[in-house]
């Protein structure tokens, strides 16, 4: 930056003005500035420059600045409100997402189960897509049938759930509830209800197993 004076003195001057000079270098600088008039001139001009710049009076914001600034602020846009709501209520978002995903899962489990299926019990007979409890036989346990019908000629001790099928009136006896589910929505409702019932029976004891 300066021609006549050594690089090192200029660097020491910068360090000094930045307030980052070691005591030994400061002494070295002082000695050098004493001996070299060019260096002294630069040094004095630099300190004078800094003094001038710092003497610049502190300016103040014009009167009414706060009011003007506040008036110019954008009215909070709607989206910001929603965004803030999401930021401040992460649990709500999590719950909403949970419900969404759960119903999607249940819906897909509904459409996945388009095949004929039923709960395996030892003495059940299958005729085509109809599950039959043969005459004279007693089937113990709950029974779920998907995409098929049920005929009871004998005796069934347990609840029956039929999805996309029918319970055909017959001579047999069912000691339990019969539920027929036909539509996707009902299936969803049943699944939710079932989850709830399971939770209740889990916490509240086995009041479910009492036969009618």
């Amino acid at each position: 930056m300066m021609n006549a004076c050594p690089e090192k003195v200029i660097r020491m001057m910068d360090d000094y003005l930045d307030g980052e000079i070691s005591p030994s270098e400061e002494k070295e600088l002082k000695d050098y500035v004493q001996s070299c008039s060019d260096c002294r001139k630069i040094y004095q001009e630099l300190t004078k420059t800094i003094a001038f710049v710092q003497s610049a009076s502190h300016v103040q914001a014009p009167p009414g600045f706060v009011q003007k600034t506040m008036a110019s602020l954008p009215k909070e846009p709607q989206r910001a409100g929603i965004k803030r709501f999401m930021r401040h209520h992460p649990l709500f978002i999590a719950a909403a997402l949970f419900v969404l995903l759960m119903s999607a899962a249940m819906m897909s489990s509904f459409s996945d189960d388009q095949q004929f299926s039923f709960t395996k019990q030892p003495n059940l007979v299958v005729e085509g897509e109809t599950v039959v409890v043969p005459a004279g036989e007693t089937v113990v346990g709950n029974l779920t049938i998907r995409n098929g019908d049920l005929r009871v000629d004998g005796e069934l001790e347990g609840n029956v759930t039929i999805v996309n099928g029918q319970y055909m009136a017959s001579s047999g006896v069912i000691n339990g509830e019969v539920e027929e589910i036909d539509q996707a929505f009902e299936w969803l409702w049943y699944t939710i209800k079932g989850t709830f019932r399971d939770a209740v029976s889990f916490f509240g004891g086995n009041d479910q197993s009492i036969d009618k």
């Binding site: 610049a56 502190h58 300016v59 103040q60 914001a61 014009p62 600045f65 706060v66 600034t69 506040m70 602020l73």
Partner: peptide, 18 residues
């Protein structure tokens, strides 16, 4: 926010002015 503007107005104006 008005209180924040109040607090920083002069320093911020000074930077911009200089």
């Amino acid at each position: 926010f008005a209180e924040i503007v109040e607090l920083y107005q002069h320093q911020l104006f000074q930077i911009c002015y200089r």
